[in-house]
Amino acid sequence: MTHLRVPTIVSLAMLLAAAGCTATDPVGTGAGQRESPVVVDPGRSGPGGPDGTDGPGSGDHRVRYDWAVPSQTVVIRNDVRPPVAPRPAPPLPYLVEIEATDHVDTDPAYSRISFVFRSGFPSYEVGYQPRIVFDGTGEPVDLAGDCFLQIRFVSAQAHDAYGRMSVQRSPGPQLRLGSLRGYGFAGDYEGRVTYGLGIDPAGGPDQPPPVRVAEVGLGDRFVVAVDVGY
């Protein structure tokens, strides 16, 4: 297993295919034809998350989206009731770390990018998109690969009470882990934190790889793990 963790903060964005890798526009982007998202409501597994949020308890693992191709936006809901922590902590779950790992000896083989939050699990939206753009400006995000997967965290933030970036550790933007070629930041705006993944499918852009999304509670770390098939 290759484990990448670099103490630098990097801009990221969300993803989908350029030519054959097609999908609908995520809610609110205006990039394409809108389609009703697939909504996954919260379901408890174990004792639940901290006050103000739903989700697995410490040490628990819960798959929220299991090995499928999100050709339309999938909305995964957690119950976030701000403020989720007393001051001076931010009022919403906040992103503190990004990790990237390779799992080549599993069946199926996959690459994983993990988003580590404090104070609880946010809700989030996952789906392939024709392009990834910055929230607020609509400018395209530069990503390697032929397909682009967007991950938008809702009721979340990536900054502290002073407006400083809260991400303390992250890998470089070029990953080169299986079909996962890189990632990029696409916005931290009005309670939404957006990232994109650049993917180079082995079968070409018309065959985007399946994706799995899981939540893991590790003490004060609330991990949303996005697995991308080889």
Rank of each mutant, 00 (worst) to 15 (best):
S170E: 08
R192M: 07
F117G: 04
L16S: 11
P82Y: 03
R64A: 11
S170C: 08
V133E: 05
Q33T: 09
Q150M: 07
L16Y: 11
V193A: 15
S58A: 15
V223E: 03
G204W: 04
D146A: 09
V40W: 01
P26F: 02
R118L: 00
Y162F: 15
M14P: 15
V216Q: 05
Y128T: 03
Y230Q: 12
G120P: 04
D60C: 06
V224R: 04
L180R: 13
R62D: 09
G127Q: 08
V74E: 01
P88N: 11
T22P: 12
A156G: 01
R81V: 06
T194Q: 08
Q129G: 06
V40L: 10
P108Q: 04
V75S: 10
G120K: 07
V141E: 05
G120L: 06
V133C: 05
E35M: 00
V223T: 02
R112M: 13
L180G: 10
G52K: 14
V226S: 06
P171H: 13
E35P: 03
G30K: 14
S155A: 13
R87G: 02
H61F: 15
F222I: 01
I9H: 08
P210N: 08
P50D: 10
F222E: 00
G138E: 01
D206Q: 13
G136A: 08
Q174K: 14
Y189Q: 14
S45E: 04
P205T: 00
